[in-house]
Write a protein that binds this DNA or RNA. Structure first.
Lengths: 225, 225
DNA sequence: TTTTCAAAGATAGTATTACTATCTCTGTCA
DNA sequence: TGACAGAGATAGTAATACTATCTTTGAAAA
């Protein structure tokens, strides 16, 4: 049996739903490749259009601008990750085991998911590490947030906070700890590869160690005192 | 007695040292104001030149491009902060007290420092919160890092890691914890103001609570077990 | 079968951005 | 007296970030 996975997306994220057409899917697939290759700053709709074999105007029918496309990609990623998280922690009762799963899911390499043909999750994961925070680090965060563009991120954070409270209902900072786990899973990974002096994993470059650091951090904090 | 403070800067950060001329100082002062007002994406050398009353070409004599200017500002900030950190923790022996100082210095509002006339540290602090990570989240981090552009950040991280080891020499992740403190001091602040659902301080919007969260996180992790 | 209409191709054009180049003026240090 | 650094003035270019409009195509509704 072949299963296909579709992440339901907020329609404020696009002008025309890229999941619904061939061109739309090409935009997603090729933008992931191009951003991964050149970084978000050097990425332009012109280059993307040339890559796909369409025109700039064609891309603009789907996304208002390249920032919105980045927000779309991040939103998709967080939605996909939450699906996996819920799927992987299903039937597990022990919140400690759940939390460890969460940390590993966030901190270690993602493998391409065959259930989404037009998205290479491994590349997307790398993009989120380097470019993810640029989705909200703008002077129009507030307006974007009002349009619910960051809902998938906030939902994921809420799910993790929930598990933290299951472990210790008295812990005072479940949401902040959840966003810390998410951000640090990515930043420590980025640092390890690019600015190793900022981590303790520079020599080994082993992302499992990032996960162990986060586990230590989280369980020390939330253990009942 | 009037004291003037000069942070020694790596000369790879600029083409002509902005601290040495009137125009240079104006560039720094006005760029801080403009980036704070419009955000880094909308900031251009043209606007800056108009603001100052000089020309674009004039700015380009000091900085290769706007990204380099951002890197300069962040480097300056980390240098300045490390000076304050060392100054404030001088003569303190208890590493726990030192660490609390560090956390508060990082997490709470900076007041303008009269010792640096052309730099408004309060505004600069806000800029670092929103734009700081964009200094290194690029596809040319590695080259920039080779030019030592991020040295002040890494030095600060090393100083904090040192204090962590003073507290508990057995702790396994001093650097990663240090970079976590630095990043989270800023991110939790940003989230509190702009995406409050990602924190536990949304209602109060009290940056002291960010500091308390970080204290709890840090001391839980490094306490001797 | 015809019409209708959404999607996308084709082409053009604009304001702004991100630079580079060159020439002149001015003040100062040697 | 002149040499030279710093900066003002002006011009120009390639690329970026869009917007507009017109045509073609293919598939479904009338």
């Amino acid at each position: 049996m072949e299963v296909q996975l579709q992440i339901k997306m907020n329609d404020k994220l696009f002008l025309r739903d890229p999941e619904q057409t061939e061109l739309g899917k090409k935009i997603i697939r090729h933008s992931i490749q191009l951003i991964h290759k050149n970084g978000f700053e050097l990425f332009t709709f012109k280059k993307l259009a040339e890559d796909i074999g369409t025109t700039e105007a064609g891309i603009y029918r789907y996304f208002e601008n390249k920032h919105r496309l980045l927000v779309y990609l991040t939103a998709w990623y967080w939605g996909w990750l939450q699906y996996h998280l819920v799927f992987n922690t299903n039937n597990i009762n022990d919140p400690a085991v759940k939390l460890k799963k969460v940390i590993h899911l966030l901190a270690t390499t993602v493998v391409d998911d065959a259930k989404t043909i037009h998205i290479n999750e491994a590349l997307l994961h790398q993009i989120i590490i380097t470019e993810g925070s640029k989705a909200y680090l703008t002077n129009h965060v507030t307006e974007d947030n009002k349009e619910q563009l960051f809902k998938p991120y906030k939902d994921l954070c809420a799910v993790i906070a929930e598990i933290i409270l299951e472990y210790n209902s008295k812990y005072k900072y479940p949401r902040s700890l959840a966003s810390t786990i998410i951000e640090m899973a990515h930043f420590q990974n980025f640092f390890m590869t690019n600015l190793p002096a900022l981590t303790d994993f520079g020599k080994s470059k082993d992302e499992l160690k990032v996960a162990l650091f986060l586990e230590d951090l989280v369980f020390s904090s939330i253990r009942k005192k």
